[in-house]
Computed example of a mutant assay.
Amino acid sequence: MVPIIKRLINEGLKVWIYSGDFDSVCSITATRFSVNDLNLTVTTKWRPWYTPDSEVGGYVQQYKEGFTFASVRAAGHLVPTIQPKRSLVLLYAFLKNMLPPADISN
């Protein structure tokens, strides 16, 4: 998938990949290694993001080329099924072209 993702990024598409941190099918560690293989420039370092009820929803890192990688806390392989509220925060951020909130006041 790395070459396909790289091609999409090179075409100027905004690409987000997210991973549940309890995913035993596609581990977050393996996904991070794949993201590193893209050789993209980090613009926002790995940091927590929050839900409207002040919980850490996961972590996120953004890259210069329009790529974003996010984790979803306490989610397995089917993130929207297991953590629907956290998934909605990510979807909203993606549609608004912004990162999910960096602190509980956002």
Rank of each mutant, 00 (worst) to 15 (best):
residue 99 L to Q: 02
residue 13 L to G: 06
residue 101 P to G: 01
residue 45 K to G: 11
residue 19 S to H: 13
residue 71 S to M: 14
residue 65 E to S: 05
residue 63 Y to Q: 06
residue 36 N to W: 15
residue 78 L to D: 10
residue 47 R to I: 07
residue 94 F to M: 12
residue 15 V to G: 03
residue 105 S to A: 09
residue 5 I to A: 06
residue 90 L to C: 03
residue 30 A to H: 10
residue 79 V to F: 03
residue 94 F to H: 06
residue 7 R to M: 09
residue 81 T to V: 08
residue 60 V to T: 04
residue 82 I to C: 10
residue 104 I to Y: 02
residue 6 K to L: 03
residue 57 G to M: 04
residue 70 A to T: 11
residue 43 T to Q: 08
residue 51 T to N: 08
residue 17 I to T: 09
residue 16 W to L: 00
residue 23 D to N: 07
residue 17 I to L: 12
residue 7 R to Y: 09
residue 16 W to I: 02
residue 99 L to G: 01
residue 35 V to M: 13
residue 105 S to E: 14
residue 11 E to K: 05
residue 30 A to I: 11
residue 87 S to W: 05
residue 55 E to W: 05
residue 99 L to M: 09
residue 12 G to I: 03
residue 9 I to D: 00
residue 63 Y to E: 10
residue 90 L to W: 04
residue 100 P to G: 06
residue 59 Y to D: 02
residue 32 R to T: 09
residue 40 L to S: 12
residue 2 V to E: 04
residue 40 L to Q: 03
residue 13 L to K: 11
residue 90 L to N: 02
residue 2 V to K: 06
residue 97 N to W: 03
residue 44 T to S: 08
residue 77 H to N: 04
residue 99 L to E: 08
residue 74 A to C: 11
residue 31 T to W: 01
residue 100 P to D: 00
residue 20 G to D: 04
residue 40 L to K: 02
residue 12 G to K: 00
residue 2 V to F: 06
residue 50 Y to N: 07
residue 80 P to G: 04
residue 44 T to R: 10
residue 62 Q to L: 09
residue 71 S to R: 10
